[in-house]
Amino acid sequence: MNDDADLMRRVAGGESDAFRSLVERYERTGYHFFLRLTGNPEDAEDLTQELFIAIFRSAGRYRPDAPFKAFFYRIASNLSASHLRKKRLRTAPSIDEMVERGFDAASTRHEDDPALSLGGREMRRRYEEALADLPRDWRIALELRVTGELTYEEIAGAMGKSASAVESILVRARERIAEKLEER
């Protein structure tokens, strides 16, 4: 049994120390995931709290043979979908917010391509707008893949879709983003 599975077994048994360790280990991951999706620190904070409360309450239903990461992101995805449905967030975070959150300008410069060397800020603004304009499920799938680093199968499990459907979503999301990035 791996560390996470053991922690979850102890959480299910009501050990508060185990829950504390689990929060310490994954609080940052959850917060970052929600911040990427919502672009709003307060919402990200609320959702992270809801996430851990849900994990605590459903610890007894966790199966140790499945990766904890998949369990974690399944709950996170459901919370995100519900939140985005309620708020209908279509607004991209401002570039200043993105910079504040730590966008690394130097790592995204493509000097050899006119379209990609627009400058870090403009390119990022377009990228974040394109992300924000994606349908809800597409955004979540992309975030699970890129930020959560889940496999297609794990994303499928988290979102209640087939792996093939997840792959199709990711292709369409990337095509949509590429179109937005090319718009002049």
Binding site: M98, F103, T108
Partner: peptide
């Protein structure tokens, strides 16, 4: 690349 360049807050 841009997506991954966002550091964890």
């Amino acid at each position: 690349s841009m997506h991954r360049s966002v550091k964890e807050a």
